[in-house]
């Protein structure tokens, strides 16, 4: 007997059959139509044809079916609202790269504000450590928030890397702020990549 290959939805990661329960049904449907049109027509194609027939098929009775539908709708609305909120939060927050003085000509780079963007700090610090052949660790800053500390003057390189990382996640418009705290006068510089379409 061969192994069955289940099609997982690209949007909600459930088997495509269960999309209606994931709370992202609309986007799932669009995805399915694009990627598996034959399944789309099989499941959703003839909905307009006869709603009452559908109800007759379901075993749990009209009343409960209606209730279920309402609950699913509510779930979807909730999910949507939550996603919008999260996106807004992401877009309004920014990554801060600070260059701090150490002894004499040495300095270090502290990167904070990453936790909002679901970037794994531990992994990032490992990548930086091997990429720049330097020490890199995670520590808590004055506001009790975690930040990545890189040893050495690497602000530009780090900035470029974080930009590419954010771009990969489809958040190109996110601000990355570089603060140079090593020099006597504080020089703040904001870099924004002009908004392209948000891929996510």
């Amino acid at each position: 007997m061969p192994l069955t290959n289940v099609i997982y939805c690209g949007v909600c990661d459930f088997p495509a059959e269960y999309c209606e329960f994931s709370g992202k049904f609309k986007r799932c449907k669009a995805w399915l139509q694009e990627n598996h049109p034959e399944l789309y027509t099989k499941w959703y194609g003839d909905v307009t044809e006869d709603v009452s027939k559908q109800l007759a098929e379901s075993s749990i009775g009209d009343e409960r079916e209606e209730k279920l539908e309402k609950a699913l709708e509510k779930l979807e609305r909730k999910q949507q609202a939550r996603e919008e909120r999260e996106l807004a939060k992401k877009l309004s927050s920014k990554v801060v790269i600070r260059r701090e003085a150490r002894t004499k000509r040495k300095c270090m780079i502290a990167i904070s504000g990453l936790e909002v963007f679901e970037i794994d700090m531990k992994k990032l610090s490992k990548t930086f450590a091997s990429k720049f052949a330097t020490g890199c660790s995670i520590s808590k800053n004055a506001e009790k928030k975690e930040e990545v500390i890189v040893q050495g003057d690497l602000a530009d390189e780090v900035e470029a890397y974080i930009h590419s990382l954010l771009e990969e996640k489809g958040m190109k418009e996110v601000k990355v702020e570089v603060i140079d705290a090593a020099k006597k006068k504080k020089k703040a510089e904001t870099t924004t990549t002009p908004g392209s379409e948000n891929k996510k």
Partner: peptide, 17 residues
């Protein structure tokens, strides 16, 4: 991958949620 191998029960539509 291979659903046949396991004991299976089925629930009605109202329970899925």
């Amino acid at each position: 991958k291979f659903p046949e191998a396991f004991p299976t029960v089925q629930v009605d539509r109202g329970a899925i949620k």
